[in-house]
Simulated assay, not measured.
Amino acid sequence: MQIKDRTFVISGGASGLGLATVRELHSQGGYIAILDLNAENGNQVAAQLGPRTKFFEVDISDPTSVATAVSSLVAWTRQTAKPLGGVIPAAGVGFPGKLIDRNNEPIPLDHLDFVLNINLRGVLDLLRLCLPHLTTAPPTEPDGERGVIVLVSSSAAYDGQPGQVAYAASKGAIRSMTLVLARDLAQYGIRAMSIAPSYFESGMTAQMSEKVRKSLEKVFEFPKRPGQGPEFARMVRHCIENGMLNGECIRLDGATRMPSRM
């Protein structure tokens, strides 16, 4: 899939890995629809990057908000005459907590819902509403490709840490549905990939304590540092541009494997 003159929808695009992806795809001539709850950041990024970028305020956990955003961004693609080329649902949250705490009390259900509604249900909701506009996009040569979906999984899908039950469940689901999406959408010329980053510098990891950050760095193989946003964004770009990448989840972790105890 050629990035130039196609529109890419990126949720969570106002910060972190989503923002890095916005900048990378924009640099390749793409039109970018940024979906995010942070209107201040989103509007600022859109203003910096110019007319090929437009911000749409959305709460990815609210179906009405998602539907409104998708309707608006589709209208924008008609104005620009730049058809949809891909969807990158990069909005995500973590809410640490074991199912049973040290006092033998179950975790509040709304803590689980908070993570699953954004990391999983919100992803499916965004995809299902964008797909009718992706399946009818003009095909490209030589394979008749219409678009690419790049999902964001996590190393937690493979070796989640204690207290990551909801997060690992959501990211494991993303990993598991990648091949299913590829099979379901093959008839339309749409590919599906997912990326499983480990510890990358992002808004989520910025909330970690210095002690936790140092503990994580001890288990890195090489390079001995957290991943950087542009490295993730280049992998997204490669997933879009390489037509033979389909139905797979790529670990982007510098060979890091998380132990059961830090």
Rank of each mutant, 00 (worst) to 15 (best):
D184Y: 07
M1G: 00
A255Q: 05
C249W: 00
R225E: 10
L131P: 12
F200D: 12
H111E: 10
R23E: 10
M177K: 03
A90D: 10
A67K: 14
A157M: 09
E201S: 03
E105K: 12
T64E: 14
E145P: 02
H238S: 13
D253M: 07
Y188G: 03
C249H: 01
S209C: 08
P108C: 02
K224A: 11
T21R: 04
G229T: 01
V22M: 05
V58H: 03
D184A: 13
S71G: 09
I195Q: 00
A233K: 00
P51Y: 07
E57P: 08
S61I: 00
V180I: 11
G189I: 01
R237C: 06
G97Y: 04
T68S: 14
F222R: 10
E105D: 14
G50Y: 01
M208C: 08
G160M: 09
M208Y: 14
A196H: 04
G13W: 07
K211E: 12
I149T: 04
H111T: 09
L124P: 00
S194E: 07
A206W: 06
M208I: 05
R128S: 13
I190S: 10
V74M: 05
P108N: 10
C239E: 00
D159P: 03
N38L: 02
P142E: 04
S176R: 03
R183Q: 15
Q2H: 12
I88N: 08
K171T: 00
P89V: 07
G227D: 09
A39D: 13
T136F: 05
P139Y: 10
